[in-house]
């Protein structure tokens, strides 16, 4: 019985950790960036932040509604003076982490030196995590939302239609 409980806990912990992507590979770009935003929020920080959101203020109210279930938010956004600072291959250590069976690609687009990818982590078919990678010349953004169930929750601060609707549809086959 005890072994079973340990196994169950390990599975739960493993699932939570699997949704979180190690973004250390991007640290090398921080020093080269013209401007950078780095956000690391674990579940306790998200909850603490949510408790300070004012439900009567427009923007804050929208975010407050959206953070339910969010277990972590990790963001790296870098802007560079010129376009040769990073190559798309530099994103490999990030994308290698989503090769597991629970990650499914929602959107992949690569053209003109730009790469956009949105991946969802699913547990028992339900979305519970997201990774967004947006790379274009001179700009790189990686967002990892752990515990996210609906893409539209992340667009709380703006209009966001079709893409959010599509994310609720059945998982597309893994490429």
């Amino acid at each position: 019985m005890r072994k079973l409980m340990v196994a169950v806990w390990m599975m739960i912990a493993g699932t939570c950790l699997a949704q979180q992507i190690d973004l250390k590979a991007l640290d090398q770009f921080a020093a080269k960036a013209k401007s950078k935003t780095e956000i690391n929020m674990d579940e306790s920080m998200v909850k603490s932040a949510a408790s300070f959101l004012n439900p009567e203020k427009g923007d804050e109210a929208a975010v407050k509604k959206s953070v339910n279930g969010l277990k972590g938010f990790f963001l790296r956004s870098y802007e560079f003076d010129n376009s040769g600072i990073f190559k798309l291959e530099d994103l490999k250590p990030i994308l290698d982490q989503i090769k597991g069976p629970n990650w499914t690609s929602f959107l992949r687009n690569q053209e003109d030196g730009e790469q956009t990818e949105i991946w969802f982590h699913r547990t028992n078919g339900q979305i519970d995590g997201m990774l967004l990678v947006a790379a274009e010349p001179g700009e790189l953004t990686v967002i990892n939302a752990v515990g996210l169930t609906r893409l539209e929750d992340l667009s709380a601060l703006g209009e966001f239609g079709k893409l959010a609707d599509q994310s609720q549809k059945k998982a597309p086959p893994k490429p």
């Binding site: 603490s48 959101l53 893409l151 966001f160 893409l163």
Partner: peptide, 20 residues
Amino acid sequence: AKQELMVAFRITGSKLRDVQ
């Protein structure tokens, strides 16, 4: 933490709009 969360949502919202 609240300010960070708001910034995170603004950037994410903006990126998702770009994607769209």
